[in-house]
Nucleic acid binder design. Structure first.
Lengths: 334, 334
DNA sequence: TCATAGGCTGCACACGTTTTCAAAAGCTGG
DNA sequence: CCAGCTTTTGAAAACGTGTGCAGCCTATGA
C-alpha cells in the first residue's frame, strides 16, 4: 500500500499534521508561504487524501447508492448515466447495485448501502416490496424514487406522467382514423401499466369510442410476451387496426409477429410504443413512440437528492412529461 | 443519523466494546452466552457496522471501481452487470464511473477511486490514454482491463479473440459463395478494429480471394456512420454481395440504407454484425452476428480481480472466444 | 488451601482525518 | 520595552472499528 498520509507530510515539512490538514484545505489560518510549501511537498509525495478517514470524522461519505433491477436494461442504463453525470459533477461517487427484482438481494443491497453509510439512495426498480421499503426507510437517509410504484408512500420521487402520455399516444391513433385500437399491457397490477391503460381508456372515452375488453391483453414488458399478446390480438375477428404497446420492447415483439403473419406496419396495423429506446428509431419501420426523457430523469432525480442532502426541503415529486415521437409505424387505417 | 455504534451496544450490555466487536465476529474468545446476548442486543438496537470505520483499520474497503466510457452503451451495461453480480456475491460493492472517453474526466475518476481507496479497478473503455494509464498504475492496486487496447502494457485483462471470430464470420460468408465481401470498420487505428480487419483478411487469403481495398470503409461503431459507410459501398460497381460489419450498431445503420435503396437482406446483400446485442435478434431480418459472451466477460474479469486481491498471481490475460450466431441476414449470393 | 492453567474480558493503541482550544510568535502603539 | 492584539501553530480529542497484550476469574489438581 504505502500510501502517504498527512502525518508523513507533516514530518518532512516539520510542522504538525493539523497544519498540513489546514494547508491542504486552503485554510486562511495558515501562513501563505508555509501553506504553499506544504502543498508542494504533498504534490511531490503523491499524496491523496483518504476519503474513508475523512468520512469517519465528517460523517459524510459523499457517496450515494443506486439500486436498479438490472443495469442491462437499456432504459435504466440511460437513467443511471444521467444520475452518475450530475453526481460526479458534485463530487459524489455512486455505488451501483442490481437487485434483479429478487427480494433477498434487495435487502442485501440495502444493508450493504447502510453499512457503507451512503449519504443518499436512488431507486429505480419497477416495484419496491413493502419489506424492502421498511429496510430502506430504517436508515434515515434521503431517498429518491424514479418511476416507482406507490410513490405516495415515499416522500420524494420523479415520475413520468403515464396517463397524459398514453392518452397522447392513443389520441394520435384516433386522429389517424383508427377505431379499433388495442392495448398490450405489462403484467397486470403494475402501477405504470395501470396508468398507461388509464390514459388509453381516457382517450377512447373522450373520442366517444366504446371500450372493448377483448382488445386489451397483457405481456410482461419484454418482446417474447409481446409476441404472444400480439398473436392473441391477430386471432380476433376482425383484428385491431392499431395497437398501443406498454413499451418499445413489447412493440418489438408485436412487430415481429405482425411481419411473420405477412402483414405490414403501418399499412395493415399501426403500432405505437413507449420509452423511445435507442432501437425505436432503427426498427423497420421506425417506431412511433412516447419518448421518456430518460437521462434527464436521472439528472433531475440526482439534483433532487442533492437538494435534500443540502438540507433544503423541496417538492415531493417531480413530474416529467413524455413526448410523442411520430415515426413511420403509424398511418391511417385502410 | 443517530446510528448505533459498537460502544453503545457495549454500554447496554455492560461489557467493553472489544468484547462486542469479538462477539459480532463470532470470535471463540468470548463466552458463548455473552456472545449471544450481545448479538441479540445488537439486533434489537438495529446495529449496522460501519464499513468506513472498519476500512480505516483493516486497510481494505471491499470496494472496487469500475470505469466505463458510458453505461448507456448496451454492450458495456451487460459486462458491468456480470461484474456487479460476482462482486456482490463476494461482499464487494462497486463504484461506477463514466469517463465519456474524456481524458479530463478519466483522470478525475481515477483520482476519486484512489481517494476512496478502492481495492481494485476494472476498466472497460475502448482505449486508455497513456497519461490515464500512468495515473492508474500509480495507485498500486490490481487492475483488470476488459477488451482494451494495448493490453500488453498492463498486466491483466480479459479479451475477446477478435481475429478468430472475424475470420469465422468472414468464412461463413465465403462458404455461402460470396466473393465480393466488404468490411465496415470502426475508426481507423483502434486495436479492435485492426484485429477484426485482420481476421477478415485472413479468411479472404485462406480462401484464395484477393483483397480489394475499395471494399474496406470505416465508420465509428455507431449506426449513423454505418449508414454513410454503406452508402459508399453501394456506390461501387458492382457493389459487394456481402458486408461484414465491425459491430451490430454499424450493421444497424447499414441495414437501414440497404432497405432505403429498395434492396433486400439477405437476397441482395448479406450482412454480418459483431457483439450480438439484444437487438440483433429483433432486426428485420434477424442479424447473423458474432456473439461476445458479455456478461461472462464481466464475470471472468471480476473473478480474475478477486484472485489478485487474494494475492494469488494468475494468468495475464484471459482470452474469450466469440461464437457465430447464424440468423437470417446471410444467404448465398444471387 | 493454594498454585496454576485456561477461558474470558478489558485496556489501550492504531487507522487518517477534521476541528476545537490553547498557546506561541509576531506585530502595533504608547 | 512592554501590554495587548493578531496571526500562526501545535496538542489533543474525536469519528467507529479491530486486535495485541495483560490481567481477571474460575476450575482443577495436588
Amino acid at each position: 500500500m504505502s500510501s502517504v498520509s498527512i502525518k508523513d507530510i507533516a514530518r518532512v515539512a516539520k510542522v504538525s499534521h493539523s497544519t498540513v490538514s489546514r494547508a491542504l484545505h486552503n485554510s486562511p489560518l495558515v501562513r501563505r508561504e508555509t501553506a504553499e510549501r506544504i502543498r508542494r511537498i504533498a504534490e511531490e509525495m503523491g499524496y491523496r487524501p483518504s476519503a474513508v478517514a475523512r468520512s469517519l470524522v465528517t460523517r459524510k461519505t459523499k457517496t450515494i447508492g443506486v439500486v436498479v433491477t438490472t443495469i442491462a436494461d437499456p432504459f435504466i442504463a440511460e437513467v443511471v448515466s444521467g444520475i452518475e453525470e450530475v453526481a460526479n459533477d458534485h463530487g459524489y461517487s455512486v455505488f451501483l447495485a442490481n437487485s434483479n427484482a429478487d427480494p433477498d438481494r434487495e435487502i442485501k443491497v440495502v444493508h450493504s448501502f447502510h453499512e457503507r453509510r451512503v449519504d443518499g439512495i436512488l431507486v429505480t426498480a419497477s416495484r419496491v416490496g413493502a419489506l424492502y421499503m421498511d429496510h430502506l426507510s430504517e436508515m434515515k437517509v434521503p431517498i429518491v424514487l424514479i418511476n416507482n410504484q406507490h410513490p405516495g408512500e415515499f416522500v420524494h420521487s420523479v415520475m413520468i406522467d403515464n396517463v397524459t402520455a398514453s392518452r397522447a399516444a392513443t389520441d394520435h391513433l384516433i386522429q389517424l382514423g383508427h377505431r379499433r385500437i388495442a392495448y398490450i399491457g405489462d403484467q397486470f397490477g403494475y402501477q405504470s401499466d395501470t396508468e398507461r391503460f388509464a390514459g388509453y381508456r381516457q382517450a377512447l372515452e373522450r373520442a366517444g369510442l366504446t371500450f372493448q375488453p377483448e382488445l386489451v391483453v397483457h405481456g410482461d414488458g419484454k418482446p417474447e410476451e409481446g409476441m404472444r399478446a400480439m398473436e392473441r390480438l391477430l386471432a380476433l375477428s376482425p383484428p385491431p387496426t392499431a395497437v398501443f404497446c406498454y413499451n418499445d420492447m413489447t412493440a418489438l415483439g408485436a412487430l415481429r409477429v405482425i411481419r411473420m403473419r405477412g402483414l405490414h406496419v403501418p399499412e395493415d396495423i399501426s403500432l405505437v410504443g413507449f420509452d423511445d429506446l435507442f432501437i425505436a428509431s432503427y426498427t423497420e419501420p421506425p417506431l412511433t413512440t412516447i419518448r421518456q426523457p430518460k437521462r434527464q430523469m436521472g439528472r433531475r432525480a440526482m439534483e433532487l437528492l442533492l437538494q435534500l442532502l443540502r438540507g433544503e426541503n423541496s417538492q415531493q415529486t417531480i413530474w416529467m412529461q413524455g413526448e410523442l415521437i411520430i415515426r413511420h409505424s403509424t398511418a391511417p387505417p385502410r
